[in-house]
């Protein structure tokens, strides 16, 4: 299978301003920064869904925005179809967007309130293809049909649509140019129970039909389990574990992954499950870190954890950054 996206040692720091920064400069210390993404690597094959999970503030959305170059990475490579996106800018970058799209979390906020569904879905076609107006309209109709939006909704504006219809419109816009990779940033978390499952099924059907690749960002492990073939778990700006989905949920190795899976409530009052409880809260991503990022919260901590654990392969396709595995 060919690799569509390969991210290598991606770093994105947000430098701090103000007194803290002046003080550091005066002391000759490295300038303080929020280390949102701190050396993340992964690859996505054609037709594959990679789930990127973690709690808010772990850097998963920053990764998504760097991949789309909505944010400029501090360093690292973002290889998309064999070309480093991190090195592109201007029009060259803009043209790449035909093949690389995104669906945002908030189906309402991500639609321009003054564009009708038709105009919105047509826009990427107008920008990236040389289709004649009639062909464009035909494509718009086809794409809307595919996402399950009826023809009669074509000329409606976002406020005239329900939440589920809005998210379908967003998905239609993202797949209109037939991209190869779609970044999905929590596409279901703003939706109600019954809509959520419909959007999940829709995404799955589209991926199969068009051999799409997804980078699926979510904090909802149950949905990730359903949609992703592989999962990468992020904590404090780095990937702590990555494995095929079935393997990860059957045999989570990193203490953070275990805690995360154990904390998901299960709709079965008679289930008996392992509980691994972390203490405290996520530390500030500003403080320079020494050793394992989970130090101080992990119940299994040993002396070895003072050194930073490398991400190493412990089984085929299963990588973990923990000294205890």
């Amino acid at each position: 299978m060919s690799i569509v996206l390969r991210v290598e040692r991606l770093v994105r720091h947000f430098p701090l301003r103000g007194p803290a920064a002046w003080a550091a400069r005066w002391r000759g210390a490295p300038p303080p920064a929020v280390r949102a993404v701190d050396g993340v690597s992964f690859a996505i094959a054609e037709g594959e869904t990679l789930g990127l999970v973690g709690e808010s503030g772990c850097g998963k959305s920053t990764v998504a925005r760097c991949v789309l170059r909505l944010l400029d990475p501090t360093s690292g490579r973002i290889e998309f179809e064999g070309e480093d996106l991190a090195a592109l800018r201007g029009d060259a970058l803009r043209r790449r967007r035909e093949r690389l799209q995104m669906v945002f979390q908030d189906p309402t906020a991500s639609l321009n309130p003054r564009l009708s569904v038709r105009d919105m879905v047509e826009e990427p076609l107008r920008l990236h293809t040389r289709l004649a107006p009639r062909e464009r309209q035909a494509r718009v109709a086809e794409v809307l049909e595919e996402v399950g939006l009826g023809r009669e909704l074509m000329d409606r504006y976002p406020h005239e649509l329900s939440g589920g219809q809005r998210q379908r419109a967003n998905i239609a816009r993202a797949i209109a140019t037939r991209p190869r990779l779609v970044v999905l940033d929590e596409p279901t978390s703003a939706l109600d129970v019954s809509l959520r499952s419909r959007v999940i099924l829709l995404l799955e059907r589209l991926r199969e039909r068009h051999a799409l690749s997804y980078l699926f960002i979510s904090h909802d492990l149950a949905t990730v389990k359903y949609l992703a073939q592989r999962v990468a778990v992020m904590y404090l700006g780095s990937v702590v574990e990555e494995a095929p989905t079935t393997e990860l949920f059957a045999r989570p190795l990193h203490p953070y992954t275990r805690a995360l899976i154990a904390a998901v409530p299960v709709p079965d009052p008679e289930a008996r499950r392992e509980r691994l409880v972390l203490s405290g809260e996520i530390p500030s991503p500003i403080a320079p870190r020494r050793g394992c990022p989970l130090r101080g919260r992990c119940p299994l901590e040993r002396e070895a954890c003072a050194a930073e654990p490398p991400l190493r392969e412990v089984a085929p396709g299963h990588r973990v950054a923990c000294h205890l595995v």
Binding site: S162, G164, V193, S194, L195, R196, S197, R198, I200, L201, L221, A222, T223, K225, Y226, F249, I261, V264, V266, P267, D268, A271, R273
Partner: peptide, 21 residues
Amino acid sequence: ALVAAIPRVDREVALEPIPGA
């Protein structure tokens, strides 16, 4: 229908959305 409409971490299920709204 509510129970069948949610993905879950503890077992493999086929998602069945609740029809209509």
